[in-house]
Amino acid sequence: MARKLPRFEAVGIREGRTFWRKYRGNADVERMLLEIAQAREVMQQIGDYFDCLHKVWVEENLGQLVALEKIRLLLNEQALRQRVLAGLKPPPRKGEPDDRNGPDEPETEVIG
């Protein structure tokens, strides 16, 4: 089993963009930043596939599969982490009003 990573402060969207401008031309830094962006896109795709799989699983009344539940929890954790890194408020809980957008702010799309 792989060793756990030490705790660290994740690179946010703005910070990544700042690094991109600051270290433009440094192939190693550019490659690392692209790797982070690509990994985040893959996590989003995995989340989308999971949603499809979970929907069918529930519709077929196949019970609760522990592996699916663990994947769901990991994906939720990553989605929340992405929202925090992007500076977005978390989505409202069921039954709560959606006040993420102020009266003068445009609608934001929440994925996940």
Rank of each mutant, 00 (worst) to 15 (best):
A27H: 12
L33R: 10
V11F: 02
F19E: 02
A86K: 14
P92E: 00
L80T: 05
W57Y: 11
E109V: 14
G12R: 03
N61I: 03
N76T: 09
G47R: 00
Q38V: 13
C52Y: 06
A67E: 11
M1D: 12
V110W: 07
E60K: 15
R100L: 12
G87C: 13
L62N: 05
E96H: 05
P103K: 02
E109M: 15
N101V: 04
A37R: 09
G112Q: 03
K22T: 06
N61R: 07
P91M: 06
Y23T: 08
L85P: 01
E41G: 14
A10G: 04
V11G: 00
D28I: 11
K4D: 12
E69L: 08
R72E: 10
V56F: 11
F19M: 10
E109W: 14
A39H: 13
V29K: 09
F19Q: 00
T18Y: 03
L80E: 09
H54G: 00
R31W: 04
I13N: 09
A86H: 14
F19L: 12
G102C: 12
A39K: 11
L65K: 13
Y23G: 09
D104F: 05
M43F: 09
P97E: 13
E35I: 02
P106L: 13
T18I: 01
C52L: 11
I13W: 12
G112V: 04
L65H: 13
E60N: 10
E109S: 15
Y23L: 14
R21E: 07
R31T: 13
E9S: 08
P91Y: 05
